[in-house]
Nucleic acid binder design. Structure first.
Length: 486
RNA sequence: GGCGCGUUCGUCUAGUGGCUUAGGACGCCGCCCUCUCAAGGCGGAGAUCACGGGUUCGAAUCCCGUACGCGCUACCA
């Protein structure tokens, strides 16, 4: 295995949507695989029938595809180690649990839920350090077991843990971790419905799929000794483990739905670019060289190294995500933004057919450094799409004076005479007009901005005017002179 | 309760015994630029490196203990 290329997997349980913590796990696996020329595998861990959610798997795959993490083997992508959906691999789990049974490393357990409950209560009363199964069914004779089996008594299969010695393993991120075997419970391997538990399925599949590195969340660290024992009992080579720190809520608890959005789809729907999400998520627990923080996926592949992943959990903090989103918008070519902006317009009250691509590209250019989201093009500068209906009263108070209307009248006349309605001409004309009126240019600039945009902020005035074009500007100026009264 | 993992500015982090009066980024504040708002440039506030002991000439960095946080403790993953 030493000479083989790494094979890693992202193994989510399809519970409805792709969690951002899951995305981070998927991303690190992906980066590790791509960097090393290995394979990135998607495996669906749907062994809990009670938690089945219609369409969850499809949704998960779709989100992964949207964000750009393509997998080499998995559902819908052929590979040599399929099927990649655990509910379709039941024969494997049965076969290998039988092997464990024969070796004496696992045993049938017919205990009822009630007995288990009582056992736990009893142990609690006795103040035992921890509640564990008491191996009651291990002492059942072959005859008793067969009789129960024949009579259809419900059963599970448990791992027969020898409570002596210690289990230790090396973790790339946490170095050596050690557990006392006496603290490891006789974990259920096969549930009474015939499905395997995570622990069994995970070990069997990782072995069968020749997974070399198990990169997963820290919540699995505590159950890793069970997995190590399983590898040992089967006589299989163990993968290398890397347990990632958790993503946290602002209060430092494990990132959860209660305290904000956790689904990648939520962020997509809010208008975050996939590039920004990837970039941000990558930085939660990992950092590159030379304080570089802006990364494209390809650059992450180049620079990523699993050894540099942090040990401590990271709070998911939206402000930095916002900043990265604006940075990625600035980086994107205008043509690409055009495509996204048109979609945004289609979903708005504005009429897409009113605007040419050429016109939209100019808006994109002029607003680019002012937007955080694509929808900001509409929110921050609606005046490029429709004439203002009303005017910001704060700006009127600040910039509009009794004499302003007559000043604007003069300017409108001069603008009307212009043949070339471009930035330079507009600026020159405005300055000349100001001189004629013996006022500062600002006394014209601000009212004009208000008149054509309805608000007091935005790109340079002459850029706005040129973009809007002569007829529109004259109309807006005249209308403002009528409507703004002080 | 038990077991495990963790602990550097509000947040994400750099840092692996002397280069550190602890560096960067987001956010916040100020100045410059400027027709406004951004962007950009410059600067500022912000971390006694959880705490207490050691080891060492010297520790954020090594060791031990304590505290706190988190995870696991299911026939869920």
């Amino acid at each position: 295995m030493i000479n083989d290329k790494p094979r890693v997997r992202f193994a989510p349980s399809p519970t409805g949507y792709l969690h951002v913590g899951g995305l981070r796990t998927a991303l690190y696996n992906y980066l590790f695989a791509r960097k090393s020329g290995g394979k990135f595998i998607l495996r669906i861990e749907d062994t809990d029938k009670n938690r089945f959610v219609e369409g969850a798997m499809e949704n998960l795959i779709e989100t992964l595809k949207w964000i750009g993490l393509d997998y080499d083997e998995g559902p819908n992508v052929s590979g040599d180690y399929g099927p990649y959906i655990q509910s379709q691999r039941l024969d494997f789990y049965q076969k290998y649990s039988n092997e464990l049974l024969e070796k004496g490393k696992a045993y049938y357990c017919f205990c009822t839920a009630e007995r288990l409950e009582n056992l736990r209560e009893e142990q609690k009363k006795l103040k035992l350090p921890q509640a564990m199964y008491d191996k009651h069914c291990l002492s059942l004779s072959k005859e008793q077991i067969n009789k129960n089996l024949d009579n259809g008594v419900p059963y599970v299969i448990r791992l027969n843990v020898e409570k002596k010695g210690t289990v230790l393993f090396d973790d790339i991120i946490r170095s050596r971790v050690e557990f006392d075997c006496s603290t490891i419970d006789d974990q259920v391997l096969i549930k009474s419905d015939g499905y395997p538990t995570y622990h069994l399925a995970n070990v069997i599949d990782d072995h069968l799929m020749k997974i070399t590195h198990v990169i997963r969340g820290e919540e699995w660290l505590s159950s890793t000794p069970k997995h190590v024992l399983l590898y040992d009992y089967f006589g299989w080579e163990k993968p290398i483990f890397a347990h990632l720190p958790l993503l946290l809520n602002p209060d430092k608890s494990k990132l959860s739905k209660r305290q904000g959005d956790v689904a990648v789809e939520d962020y997509r729907d809010k208008g975050y670019l996939k590039e920004a999400i990837i970039n941000f998520i990558a930085l939660l627990g990992w950092s590159g060289k030379d304080n570089k923080e802006f990364f494209l996926l390809d650059e992450l592949i180049q620079e990523f190294s699993i050894e540099k992943v942090h040990k401590a959990g990271a709070v998911f903090n939206v402000e930095k995500l916002n900043w990265l989103n604006s940075e990625h918008i600035k980086y994107k070519p205008n043509e690409e933004i055009l495509y996204m902006l048109k979609k945004e317009i289609e979903n708005s009250n504005f009429r897409i057919e009113k605007y040419t691509d050429y016109y939209l590209i100019q808006i994109i250019d002029v607003m680019k450094e002012r937007v955080t989201f694509i929808k900001d093009y509409l929110m921050l500068s609606p005046y490029f799409f429709e004439a203002p209906i009303d005017y910001d009263s704060n700006v009127i108070d600040k910039r509009w004076r009794p004499e302003t209307t007559s000043h604007l009248k003069k300017l409108t006349e001069n603008y009307d005479k212009l043949e070339h309605f471009n930035k330079d001409q507009l600026e020159e004309t405005l300055k000349i007009t100001a001189e004629e009126l013996q006022i500062g240019a600002g006394k014209l600039i601000h009212p004009v901005r208000l008149a054509v945009s309805g608000i007091g902020v935005g790109p340079g005035l002459y850029e706005i005017l040129e973009l809007l074009s002569k007829d529109e500007v004259i109309v807006r100026l005249k209308r403002a002179m009528e409507k703004i009264k002080i």
